[in-house]
């Protein structure tokens, strides 16, 4: 960030002389400071998990969800500014609905992702707007199987086997790489996802957190649903056990 303060970082419509758009990079900073979100694409589905930092004990448990549904078969987890995440989810829902209206069938995940990324990219072009301060993990199961994407503030969207965004992404990615994702079932992946979120959470620096998990797969009949309470509790227990052994 040597060019900070040179005047090229005030507008998303201006490049710096070395070809960077600082507003986009700053947007990424917003993501880096936020609770970790991960997504796993496994044999028969998708698992999304989020480390939701609880900044006040007065908050209602399970409220202000950071994983949202885009369509029956698509889920979206965000890291960064919550309000931006809700706006993008709302836009993505509109695209999924529009696809259903036109083609009378559920939208392919990559279609929603490509439309969403075009929308995000448009906010990197003008001086009058600010880029979105979120990285978005989009996961879904369509008739071609499970898919997982990450849409970044720049508007790029990559497909992944496993993805992690937010504060703990480095450690999370290292842990995800150790998994044999193509052999894992969604049920097993839920346990792994819980373990990773607990692992990357820094309880020295951070406040309390809530583990939020959803899944899509054969077990949910292709629907994007919250992980059932009993499985959630079990995964959380195993995650805490693993944490003690890890340290």
């Amino acid at each position: 960030m040597t060019s900070i303060g040179t005047g090229y970082d005030l507008s998303a419509s201006t490049y710096s002389p070395d070809g960077r758009i600082f507003q986009v990079e700053y947007a990424n900073k917003a993501v880096e400071n936020s609770g970790t979100a991960i997504g796993l694409r496994v044999k028969d589905g998708i698992v999304l998990a989020v480390e939701k930092i609880i900044h006040s004990k007065l908050l209602v448990p399970d409220a202000n969800r950071r994983i949202q549904s885009i369509d029956k078969h698509i889920g979206l987890a965000t890291s960064g500014f919550q309000a931006d995440g809700r706006h993008l989810a709302s836009h993505a829902r509109g695209e999924a609905t529009s696809y259903r209206e036109w083609y009378r069938s559920p939208a392919p995940v990559k279609e929603v992702v490509s439309r969403l990324s075009m929308y995000v990219q448009a906010y990197t072009l003008y001086s009058s707007v600010r880029p979105f301060g979120v990285s978005t993990i989009v996961g879904g199961v369509d008739n071609a199987g499970p898919h997982l994407f990450v849409v970044e503030p720049s508007g790029v969207a990559y497909g992944y086997h496993g993805a992690a965004v937010g504060k703990g992404r480095q450690l999370a990615k290292t842990e995800i790489e150790k998994l044999k994702l193509v052999e894992l079932s969604t049920r097993e992946a839920v346990v792994e996802a819980a373990r990773i979120i607990y692992l990357v959470h820094d309880d020295q620096k951070e406040k309390e957190f809530e583990l939020e998990m959803t899944w899509i797969g054969d077990e949910t009949n292709g629907l994007h649903l919250p992980v059932p309470k009993d499985l959630h509790t079990e995964a959380e227990r195993k995650a805490k056990d693993a944490l003690e052994n890890f340290e």
């Binding site: 969800r65 949202q68 549904s69 885009i70 369509d71 029956k72 829902r93 999924a96 609905t97 259903r100 209206e101 009378r104 629907l223």
Partner: peptide, 15 residues
């Protein structure tokens, strides 16, 4: 049918 499907999907995604 299309109208109701949209209605049901919107209700589902409300979460």
């Amino acid at each position: 049918q299309g109208m109701l499907d949209e209605l049901v999907t919107d209700e589902f995604t409300a979460g």
